[in-house]
Design a protein around this nucleic acid. Structure first.
Lengths: 213, 213
DNA sequence: GTTCATTTAGAACAGGTGTTCGCTATGTCC
DNA sequence: GGACATAGCGAACACCTGTTCTAAATGAAC
C-alpha cells in the first residue's frame, strides 16, 4: 500500500462515515460534495487509485458500488464473559461454578474485546462494591475481569481471601521466604504481610473496566 | 409487525444475501430480477409495506437507499475506537482530527463492546503515561475512552488542560459561581480550584480500561 | 352477484449516476 | 528549456434508478 494523498484519506474517511451513518455507500457526487471536490472526474480518478492500492473495491457501472475493504478485517468477534457476582471487602469472593459459566443462566453478560483477554480461558467478571479497593486503583462499580486459577506467579495481581480477617482484597502477590507480601497497585501505599496459610488465591486479575456515569 | 407475504419474505431475504455478497444494497431492479417480480412498481409497493412494518428503512430518491433494520447483529458488534495518542501530566492532550478518525490510518485500534460506549459518537482513546492520574484512580498504561466535546455538564469527568500550569489532568468538573472546581475521582483527595479562563475542556471521559500484565 | 381493499402490470418521466473526453496545471527528472 | 507523469477541471453522454400514473387482476366480506 502506497502512501495516500490528503484528498484520498479524506475520501476513505468520508466513505466510512457515510456507511456508518446511512448504511449504504455514497455516490460519486456524494463524495464530491462531502469532500469538497471540484469535479466528479477527480473523485473517479482518486477512487481508481484507492482501488489499485487495495483500500476499496469498485463495481463498474453500478451506482454506489463501493466496498470498503479495510473495515471488514478489523472486527474480531467479541468474547462473552459472565458477571457472576460482587466483590466487596467483607464478603467472600464468588467462585465460578459450572452453573455460572452457563451463558444462558448467568445474570449478566459482558462482551469483551478479544484482545483484552487474549487466549486466556476460564474468564469471569466481578462487579466491585465499595471503596475498599482504591489502593488497587479500583473504584466502586468497576468491573474486574478474572481468570480462575488457584495459584499465581510472583507479582501478579490476584483476588485474595484473608481467612482470619474474613476480608477480600485485590493485591499483587509476592511470595517471600517466610510469608506472603500483598502489595497494592498504588505504589504509594504500604504492603501487607500475611502468613501463607491465612490466604487463599481466588483468581487472577487480568483487566479492569470502569464505565463512567 | 404484521405477517409478511411470501413475496415480501423473499425480498427481505434477497436484500440480506445481496448485502452480504456485494456489501452495497440492491436497486429496485436488482430486487425485481433476483425475486422474479414482473414490475418495478410491485417491488416499490412491497418495499413500502416492508418499511411501514419496520423491516427496512428507505431513503427517498436515493439509489439503493435501503437499510435492513432486522439485522440487529450489527448493534452488538464491537466498535473500533482509534487510539490517537498519549495523555500525560506535562503534555498537551491530543485532539482528534479528521485524519486520526480514519479507521485505516490510525496507528492503533481498539475493539470496544458497544454497550460500553452506548450510542455515543466521536469516541477516541488515549493511553495514560505516568502516575499523575492516580488521584482519578487511573494507572500508568491505562486506556481512557474519551468523547470529543468542548463543554461538559456539572460533575462529569473530563480531560482538562490547565493553560497556566501547562498540565493535563482528568477531573470531575464543577462550575461554581466564580471559578471551576476540579474534583479528583478519589473522594479522599482535595479538589483544585481554577479560574474559568485558565482551563480548556478537551473531552469527556466515558470509560477506563486497564489490562494487567 | 356487488363492493371494497389489496396486489399486480406496464410504461413513462425526471433526476441520479458512472463514465469519458479534451484540456489545463503542477511538479520532477534529464 | 523540454519531456513526462501526476493531478485537477468542467462538460457532456448514456444508462441507471426511484417514482408515478393508469389500468387491470385478485381475493375477501357481505
Amino acid at each position: 500500500m502506497k502512501k495516500l494523498s490528503d484528498k484520498q484519506r479524506r475520501i476513505i474517511n468520508f466513505i466510512d462515515r457515510f456507511l456508518v451513518d446511512k448504511s449504504y455507500p455514497p455516490s460519486i457526487r456524494d463524495i464530491q460534495a462531502g469532500c469538497k471536490i471540484s469535479s466528479t472526474s477527480v473523485v473517479d480518478y482518486n477512487l481508481n487509485i484507492l482501488e489499485r492500492e487495495g483500500y476499496i473495491r469498485r463495481h463498474a457501472e453500478v451506482s454506489r458500488g463501493i466496498k470498503l475493504l479495510s473495515r471488514t478485517s478489523t472486527s474480531e468477534s467479541p468474547v462473552p464473559v459472565p458477571v457472576i457476582g460482587l466483590i466487596a471487602a467483607g464478603e467472600p469472593i464468588p467462585v465460578p461454578t459450572p452453573d455460572t459459566w452457563n451463558v444462558t443462566v448467568a445474570a449478566e453478560m459482558l462482551e469483551m474485546p478479544r484482545e483484552l483477554i487474549r487466549s486466556k480461558e476460564d474468564i469471569y467478571a466481578l462487579r466491585v462494591k465499595g471503596m475498599s479497593m482504591v489502593d488497587a486503583l479500583i473504584n466502586d462499580g468497576d468491573i474486574v475481569l478474572m481468570q480462575y486459577v488457584s495459584a499465581v506467579e510472583n507479582g501478579e495481581m490476584a483476588a485474595v481471601w484473608l481467612k482470619a480477617e474474613k476480608e477480600a482484597t485485590l493485591k499483587k502477590v509476592y511470595i517471600e521466604s517466610d510469608c506472603v507480601r500483598l502489595q497494592p497497585a498504588n505504589s504509594q501505599m504500604r504492603p501487607i504481610y500475611a502468613e501463607s496459610d491465612n490466604i487463599e488465591i481466588q483468581g487472577r486479575v487480568i483487566a479492569v473496566v470502569r464505565q463512567i456515569t
